[in-house]
Design a protein around this nucleic acid. Structure first.
Length: 370
DNA sequence: TCTGGGGTCCTAGGACCC
DNA sequence: TCTGGGGTCCTAGGACCC
């Protein structure tokens, strides 16, 4: 029988920081910019379960978290450390299980074959024990026939648990859960469904036509999920990254075009640098701004061939920013910018060499097309 | 006192081609 | 001259996830 073990590392960033620091064990710990170091627009990146018990959760503004949990130990984030640790987990799981599908920095789906639910549970317990003893990281594991149901099970197994949903129990397991427990159903979709009188997953089963009309393909998918008809395959892994981006939120909203240009140039250079390290070429550049009312505008432009280095990003990004600032959305320069970002899409590996291997027209850099 | 930074996927209209 | 579909690419925006 085919199963998915869905492994989720508990309070991942906090757990990374606790490794080698036993004094942090059992204490409230928050990873994020400490508001005691000055006013900041930062948010909580990860909170230990001790901190969560006071109401703190990730994405909460840090000022509020500090008031809710004054005794917390604050640790500034170290993303390179978390990325390295995630790779350690991946390699450990690959050694034991072969195929591992990373779903995010702290989640991994393992396709396995076992004769029955009891054997699947034993495997899940083995994973938890192994990740704990080898790497010092706590985790939770959900087990089901399909990856989506396994993920939902994992959320209910947290922290530090295992939950097995056998195929014949899938529909009854899902039915009483709120629709918001479905991955991909956020506040907007939840509100839309509430408007249809649908609050629990089981209620999705009675409304296939309305779901199709209101939510399109996604509506069909959650209808089938509610009926326990989720496909068991996990799609094609390893397609490579689709985009890279860098953004900056100003401490105070700005409208000065020079300040925006300066920030955009800095972001472009940083982005180009990391693309260079990954040996990624790009063909499309996107600039986006989040205005002071949190609404967003963006402009993007594709180039006729793959590009590398900072100059094409800088040049195009500054032009796109110009267009944004002249667009009606900018309100004649009166609307202030909260966040500015630059991104690239249509990525290719190996840079210029790969662009030629692809067989597309690869004109010399600078040759004008269009 | 709101709300970071890095991503993915979907939709929809228009251009353009057959 | 008018009227069609189908397919793909480009661009803008939106929802969602960790």
């Amino acid at each position: 029988m085919r199963w998915t073990l869905y492994v989720d590392l508990d309070a991942f960033y906090v757990s990374c920081e606790r490794r080698g620091h036993p004094e942090l064990e059992g204490r409230p710990v928050i990873v994020g910019p400490d508001p005691k170091n000055g006013p900041t627009r930062g948010v909580v990146l990860s909170a230990s379960y001790e901190a969560r018990s006071t109401g703190v959760h990730s994405a909460m503004p840090v000022e509020r978290a500090a008031r809710l949990c004054p005794e917390a130990t604050w640790i500034p984030p170290d993303f390179a450390k978390y990325e390295r640790t995630s790779q350690e987990v991946r390699h450990l799981l690959e050694e034991r299980f072969g195929r591992v599908l990373p779903r995010s920095i702290d989640e991994f789906a393992l396709p396995v074959e076992t004769p029955d639910a009891a054997a699947a549970r034993a495997l899940a317990e083995e994973v938890r024990a192994m990740v704990r003893s080898e790497l010092g990281l706590p985790s939770s594991v959900g087990v089901a026939a399909s990856p989506t149901v396994a993920k939902i099970a994992t959320d209910r197994a947290k922290p530090g648990g295992v939950l097995v949903v056998p195929p014949e129990g899938t529909v009854d397991f899902l039915a009483p859960l709120p629709v918001g427990d479905i991955p991909g159903v956020g506040p907007k979709t939840e509100a839309l469904l509430a408007g249809l009188g649908i609050h629990r997953i089981g209620e999705l089963r009675s409304a296939p036509q309305r779901l199709r009309r209101e939510l399109g393909r996604f509506g069909e998918e959650i209808y089938r999920l509610a009926r326990g008809e989720e496909p068991t395959d996990m799609g094609s892994p390893e397609a490579g990254p689709r985009s890279r981006s860098a953004e900056h939120t100003f401490e105070r909203d700005v409208s000065d075009p020079d300040a925006l240009r300066e920030a955009l140039e800095r972001l472009s250079d940083g982005l180009a640098e990391s693309l260079g390290q990954e040996e990624l070429a790009y063909r499309t550049v996107t600039v986006s701004v989040r205005w002071d009312d949190f609404k967003q505008s963006q402009r993007s432009r594709s180039m006729p061939s793959q590009q590398e280095g900072a100059d094409p990003i800088r040049g195009l990004a500054l032009r796109l920013l110009q267009e944004l600032l002249r667009s009606p959305a900018a309100d004649g320069g009166r609307r202030k910018v909260r966040t500015i970002s630059v991104g690239v899409q249509h990525l290719a590996h190996g840079g210029a060499r790969q662009a030629k291997l692809d067989g597309f027209a690869a004109p010399e850099p600078g040759s004008a097309v269009k």
